[in-house]
């Protein structure tokens, strides 16, 4: 692989539970990726503009408050508005199974729920990048 994979780890919405986001960020970094973590309380607008600015290959979002059905699709909508179609977008957190098909239909490539091991996430990113690294 020639280029380092760049990942924006983001916390959309108002919840302050970022243990998971930080563990993922660190595991991705240990796997050789370049990781930018946004910190808490990011709006979909802020996330999309950070992803563009940082030239991210991947956006990995984490929500534990239950606002995922509102915020995840909104990020996809904004990416489309900005004509960004080559960024892999992932979601994680406390997300009921019933919500996953809808989120995938909105364009989220995969949802990782509690108990997901970090190697599975790393593998998924490596195998599903939209831009060739």
């Amino acid at each position: 692989m020639d280029r380092t994979i760049r990942v924006l780890v983001a916390k959309p919405g108002l919840d302050g539970h970022d243990r998971g986001a930080k563990v993922i960020a660190r595991a991705l970094r240990d796997a050789g990726m370049e990781v930018i973590y946004t910190g808490l309380r990011q709006t979909p607008e802020q996330i999309v503009s950070a992803a563009i600015q940082e030239d991210a290959d991947v956006i990995a979002m984490s929500i534990l408050s239950g606002a995922h059905n509102h915020l995840f699709p909104r990020v996809m909508e904004l990416l489309r508005e900005k004509k960004v179609d080559d960024v892999l977008v992932l979601g994680g957190g406390v997300i009921p199974d019933d919500d996953i098909p809808g989120l995938k239909a909105a364009g989220i490539a995969e949802i990782f729920t509690p108990g997901s091991p970090t190697p599975a996430i790393i593998e998924f990113i490596k195998n599903n990048l939209k831009r060739k690294a």
Binding site: G13, L14, R41, T43, G66, A67
Partner: peptide, 8 residues
């Protein structure tokens, strides 16, 4: 900023 979070 409360959008999607109210009552959750």
């Amino acid at each position: 900023l409360s959008q999607g979070e109210v009552g959750k």
